[in-house]
């Protein structure tokens, strides 16, 4: 049973910013927030509904970046023609987040702000060198993914800030994303991409507290054993720490092999 709370439905972003504080929080798909509230982990006194603000769902492209409104659902991102044209790897990942209901309810911004470590998007967007735009009545801030995600369920977003959008620099890197997922969230997810500057970048997510980024001039510079030595998984229902270390190496090698062959 959910606790009691107030619910407001602002018409625009400025109105949202005036309402946010430590007790009054942004609310979009609810796929993370409502679960945490049901379990008593979060007890906000008020929710500010973002779903009816069209500006927060816009997806656009400029010369330099693809910009995705934080309120766009996973399904909307996957089906958008700009994303399909410029970031096919993001389409593939968004088509496989959670289940079909989570994809139609959950938003890209909510996924990032909750910072659940077992997130495909945290790893992929780090591989893409994406940035996030945070806004408050005090002004705007743009942060790289590594600056934004500080730890499990912990971001640099202040209580009065709203995540407005995610920007992916163009041209968007190409490569591969592979994951092992037997429950509703991935156990390990690995992105291997070649950047516009020709660098090879591997990002390991889900198995670590925050995504681990490794880069090199060629795929031969990516040392899977070295990556395995760096990750410190915890044993849980998805497997022992030893098992997770092993599959991390397997999935790094798979991702690199696919990216080497030039997959999306």
């Amino acid at each position: 049973m959910l606790p009691e709370f107030t619910l407001s439905r602002p018409a625009d972003i400025d109105e949202v910013l005036r309402e946010l504080n430590a007790d009054v929080v942004p609310y979009a798909g609810g796929t993370e927030l409502l679960l945490a509230m049901k379990m008593g982990l979060l007890v906000p006194s008020g929710l500010v509904d973002l779903k009816r603000i069209p500006a927060l769902r816009e997806i656009s492209a400029s010369e330099s970046a693809i910009v995705i409104g934080a309120g766009a659902t996973h399904d909307e991102v996957a089906r958008h023609e700009l994303i399909q044209a410029h970031a096919p790897l993001l389409v593939q990942v968004e088509q496989n987040v959670g289940n079909a209901r989570v994809r139609s309810q959950g938003t890209i911004g909510g996924n990032l702000c909750f910072a659940e470590p077992r997130s495909d998007l945290l790893a992929l967007l780090a591989a893409f060198d994406a940035t996030v735009l945070l806004r408050s009545v005090r002004g705007d801030r743009t942060l790289a993914m590594a600056e934004f995600v500080l730890g499990p369920y912990w971001t640099d977003r202040a209580e009065d800030e709203l995540l407005v959008s995610v920007a992916i620099p163009r041209p968007c890197p190409t490569g591969a994303y592979v994951k092992l997922q037997v429950t509703e969230r991935p156990t390990v997810g690995v992105a291997a991409v070649r950047t516009a500057a020709g660098r090879c970048r591997v990002v390991v997510g889900s198995v670590t507290e925050v995504p681990l980024v490794v880069a090199g001039a060629s795929w031969d510079d990516i040392d899977a054993d070295g990556i395995v030595a760096q990750v410190e998984p915890v044993s849980d229902i998805a497997g022992s720490a030893e098992y997770k270390k092993h599959i991390t190496g397997v999935y790094v090698r798979r991702a690199v092999a696919l990216a080497r062959d030039g997959a999306v």
Binding site: G30, T31, V102, S104
Partner: peptide
């Protein structure tokens, strides 16, 4: 399950599938 995992509460809102166990009636 009340966790959006099992799917028994699936209904359509404006044609899109949602888990009605984790969706506010107010919405």
């Amino acid at each position: 399950c009340e966790l959006q995992v099992c799917g028994v509460c699936s209904v359509l809102v404006d044609g899109r599938p949602v888990s009605s166990c984790t969706y506010l009636a107010a919405d």
